[in-house]
């Protein structure tokens, strides 16, 4: 390096900057180990901005004839669990006055809503899908949520785990979908019950949902993919 402070002139330091910049392409591998630290340093601010950007109101939807069934790819982290519809129960517990165990008939008895939205995967692909089922907000309201509840933990039959901020869970277009594109939800897409929402990335939208737990704070586990490095808020 420079022998004297003056030797590291502006010219030289800028040269070094340019050289290091151009070697980024070749030396990217060396920077890869910093990825997580870089994400942890910047995600809190990004997530705050995301939460501010996210409105509570309805987002415009697509027309029913715009759905793209072939564009919806299937991702599964642990195979496809078998859930018998007759014995299926959705458990709602945590910070609620009336813990629930709802069967499919109870979910079908709630007001049904269809949302034709763009399902966006973290991988980059997207598909317009018509999801239908009860609103997640209506299901939570049945259980008498405590005002202290701020987060929702979602457990799936395949051990997939997710946590959401309550505002996103209560969004009027966040559904517990039981139908897709007008037909009963296929097993590969999460039958009998899955999350569907226009305001979150696909990995937030758990399939094969069996338990909702209202929590006052987040625990050690943020989610199956979040714990591996994905963003937690993942707002769209």
């Amino acid at each position: 390096m420079a022998a004297s402070p003056e030797a590291l002139s502006r010219r030289r330091s800028l040269g070094l900057l340019l050289a290091s910049g151009s070697s980024l392409l070749l030396g990217g591998c060396a920077l890869n180990r910093w990825s997580n630290a870089v994400g942890e340093a910047t995600q809190p601010l990004n997530e705050r901005i995301e939460a501010l950007l996210q409105g509570k109101g309805m987002l415009p939807e697509f027309r029913r004839n715009q759905v793209e069934p072939e564009a919806l790819l299937v991702n599964s982290f642990n195979g496809i669990p078998k859930l018998a519809p007759s014995s299926y129960r959705l458990v709602v517990n945590g910070m609620v006055r009336r813990p629930l165990s709802l069967d499919l008939a109870a979910l079908a008895a709630l007001p049904q809503r269809e949302c034709v939205i763009r399902h966006v995967c973290v991988e980059g692909w997207a598909a317009i899908v018509a999801w239908s089922g009860p609103r997640l907000a209506d299901v939570l309201a049945l259980a008498g949520p405590s005002p202290l509840g701020a987060y929702l933990a979602i457990r799936s039959a395949d051990q997939y785990f997710e946590t959401w901020d309550l505002a996103s869970a209560l969004h009027p277009q966040t559904l517990l979908a039981t139908h897709m594109n007008g037909a009963p939800l296929p097993v590969a897409n999460g039958a009998p019950v899955r999350l569907a929402s226009p305001i979150k990335l696909g990995y937030k939208q758990s399939k094969w949902v069996i338990e909702l737990e209202l929590m006052t704070s987040l625990g050690d586990r943020l989610g199956t993919w979040e714990d591996k490095g994905y963003e937690w808020f993942a707002g769209l």
């Binding site: 990217g28 591996k228 490095g229």
Partner: peptide, 28 residues
């Protein structure tokens, strides 16, 4: 999924989440 990927030499992040970490850290 059947598409051709970019050689690792030209990528930064190591995997999808790492790439997103860098992309969204630098975008601001």
């Amino acid at each position: 999924r059947e598409g051709v990927t970019v050689p690792e030499l030209f990528t930064l992040g190591g995997w999808l989440a790492g790439g997103r970490d860098w992309h969204f850290a630098v975008m601001g």
